[in-house]
């Protein structure tokens, strides 16, 4: 009898504890991909504390989610297009309850209902952007840099930076050879690897944590960069130019997804709705320089942001642009092998 009473007391105590626990949203996102102000305002408005953890590649994000599969670690992640379809097909995602999402109808019709996730059952677009060329015009003399192929120029030896992103780097190699950036042909991937090894003596560093930093630090003069990073660097380094390469820019879309075992899907939905508010979406685009798929937000943008060609490309800029798509696990392994060889070579 005593034991029973004790157990009862304990149970009461435990449930009492859990209801008082502060609500937490575990957000897993790219580094420097969400202004602090948005998190703070969300916390103030809802009382939900956001724990913000970052990754620097889709592969790392995916691997970590797989590792933490059962422990329900993250409530929200932001994979790129091709990982949305991969994760959806592998049944790693929770369907998104559209009735809990406000503002979905304001999204650009061209960026919803894509092949990667028909009818957006599992994903809500967050931002889209491009990976192009960064050129430090102060230090680059002679012929202007206009194409990916220019990176192979001898004058850039030791001054080139690439993103630390397997797919993007191979995308460049494949495009320079005239192939699709989404190639799954092992032959073409190997050719791209061979081509990229020629570039390696010029490559100073790989960086996907903050691709603008090596340019700001003066370590590199030319190479790859994400458009948002280029915009963020504008203020401190006006000489850094964002160039749309002739072979075509790399385009991507990052979307919110809720991992299958999310502990707090409710908060995840709340957060998505919060971000979809035009005012918040506009703030994000303005702060970190990527393009918002939210049309209502685009109208609220100040002119200098809306007309910034780095953030919002013109139709001509997008000639030859190629969106990244899912290439399947088999091809991914081929890429992964050459990627490691590429990075460990001298």
């Amino acid at each position: 009898m005593k034991k029973l009473a004790l157990a009862g007391l304990l149970a009461v105590g435990l449930t009492g504890c859990s209801s008082e626990e502060p609500k937490v949203l575990n957000l897993y996102n790219w580094s420097e991909y969400m202004p602090q102000e948005v998190l703070t305002r969300f916390e103030e408005e809802t009382g939900i504390q956001v724990v913000y953890t970052t990754y620097d590649s889709n592969e790392a994000m995916y691997a970590k989610l797989k590792l933490l599969d059962d422990s329900a670690a993250y409530d929200l992640a932001v994979p790129s297009t091709y990982y949305v379809s991969k994760m959806r097909q592998e049944d790693l995602l929770l369907p998104i309850d559209r009735s809990k999402i406000e503002g979905f109808d304001k999204l650009d019709p061209e960026l919803v209902n894509l092949d990667i996730d028909p009818d957006n059952k599992f994903s809500i677009p967050y931002l889209w952007g491009t990976t192009g060329l960064a050129v430090d015009t102060d230090d680059v003399e002679g012929e202007p840099v206009t194409a990916w192929a220019d990176l192979w120029d001898e004058r850039f030896e030791g001054r080139v930076m690439l993103t630390n992103d397997m797919r993007e780097v191979f995308h460049v190699g494949l495009r320079v050879l005239g192939y699709s950036g989404n190639s799954t042909d092992p032959q073409q991937i190997e050719e791209a690897y061979e081509k990229l090894t020629e570039l390696m003596p010029s490559v100073r560093t790989f960086n996907s944590d903050a691709p603008r930093v090596p340019y700001l630090e003066g370590e590199t003069d030319v190479g790859m960069i994400w458009n948002g990073e280029a915009v963020m660097a504008e203020e401190t380094m006006p000489s850094l130019e964002y160039v749309y390469p002739e072979e075509g820019i790399i385009a991507w879309l990052d979307s919110f997804v809720i991992p299958k075992n999310a502990k707090n899907p409710e908060a995840a939905h709340q957060f998505i709705s919060f971000v979809l508010q035009p005012e918040i979406s506009a703030l994000i685009s303005e702060e970190i320089g990527y393009a918002t798929p939210n049309l209502a937000a685009r109208e609220m943008l100040p002119d200098d942001v809306a007309n910034n060609r780095a953030s919002y490309p013109t139709p001509e800029d997008m000639t030859n642009a190629e969106f990244q798509v899912d290439i399947g696990d088999e091809a991914l392994q081929v890429y992964a092998k050459y990627w490691e060889m590429l990075k460990s070579g001298r």
Binding site: S57, A63, K66, T205, F206, A336, E340, S344
Partner: peptide, 20 residues
């Protein structure tokens, strides 16, 4: 600069990126 990898990087990548 994420180049000049060590065996440790390879092991870490296999477990945390490439999942091999």
């Amino acid at each position: 600069g994420s180049r000049n990898l060590l065996v440790g990087n390879v092991i870490k990548n296999q477990f945390l990126d490439a999942r091999n």
